[in-house]
Design a protein around this nucleic acid. Sequence first.
DNA 1: TCTGGGGTCCTAGGACCC
DNA 2: TCTGGGGTCCTAGGACCC
Length: 404
Amino acid sequence: MAEETKADIPKPIFPKVYLHVDLDAFFASVEQLDNPEYRGKPVIVGGLPGDRRAVVSTASYEARKFGVHSAMPLVTAVKLCPNAIYVRGRYQRYEEKSQEVMGILAQYSPSLIQISVDEAFIDLTGTERLFGPAENVAKKIKAEVKEKTGLTVSVGMSSSMYIAKIASGFKKPDGLTIVRAGDEERFMLELPMSKIWGVGEKTQERLKAAGFRTTRDIYEKSEKLLMTMFGNSMGTFLYEAVRGNNSMTFGGEPKSHSISSEKTFEYDLTERYTIDTEIMVLITDVLYRMHKENVRSRTVALKIRYDDFTTVSVQSTSSRPVMNADDMFQRCQALFTKKWEVGKGVRLLGVSCDNVEDKSVPVQQELFDFGDSKRAKVEEAIYKMEDKNPKLKIVKGRVLRVES
DNA sequence: TCTGGGGTCCTAGGACCC
DNA sequence: TCTGGGGTCCTAGGACCC
């Protein structure tokens, strides 16, 4: 039946062509763009020297020469490169520049998938007649982004999104790497295991412990064996990835998602009162963003990281959605009490709403009428005021007070 | 070196239902 | 009187990504 359908629809067969476009050292580059005096110098975005628990978000290429890289504790960066220019980061500004770049990319194909603030896939399949060969488009994009935004990008091009993604990281900055049709498997087999996208530190250790040294070692094993060794999902993933068959797909229905806020404290928290206050701050942030997205959730989760870095999480799902900040605060209190090891220093607290759904999908009416909906309406009004004037910080008190 | 913040997906087990 | 199988929902933890 599936075969019949395939045969019935005469599809023009264009060879698939994807680009993966990646902004080089994005945050640091924007800083260098906006501050000419930073150009040619090591710039480190993520925190200022003295920030106890910050990490490096992005290091400019000049800073990377000193061994500084993303996710490195800031104190280490300061030791390696004390003379660098340190900035905390202006994320609004990066978002702005990101949109400029995405706007340019969007001109070259109707299917553009932005996967983060600094990277996107473009499907160029079938656009040749309009824009010329994909390779030229890639070059044109690089030139246009540079000219119009002052930023450089590295581009990977391939018949598979997965390989295009890996290819864009091959030559950086300002690189263009093309993996031609038929070369996919060879490309993957020449890749060090550490460059397989989706294989992190832990899986790498497991691979090494099992005697794997190269992607070819993986290639030579059967899918079944890989599945037994690394689990069904990871096994299949590895099997396909080293063959260049990985099927990342475009589109797909939007899955359930979550909205979270968390904070690592400069100094560990031990007092319940302080902890509750911080939880309230996180809740306010999460609820505000849920309001902006017009979503609701029945599942509330709380995360605690202790001073020894052990991390625990608790969640609970109720039959009715979170109605307001007080409601959510009560749920979080219950969760926190359930997990808290009194006396242990708390270095991080996190709060999230999982499985959020659009407010347009109906909720059973009885579930709404618990007297909470009035509070929800008042809070909604407050959020709207904040929308109009983001500078206005209405929620100043420890707990959001709503007269009902 | 001493480890951010925002997410997604996977695993494995338990409860519950038919 | 020694215990099936499938499906769905939920929970906790962990790996991974940028």
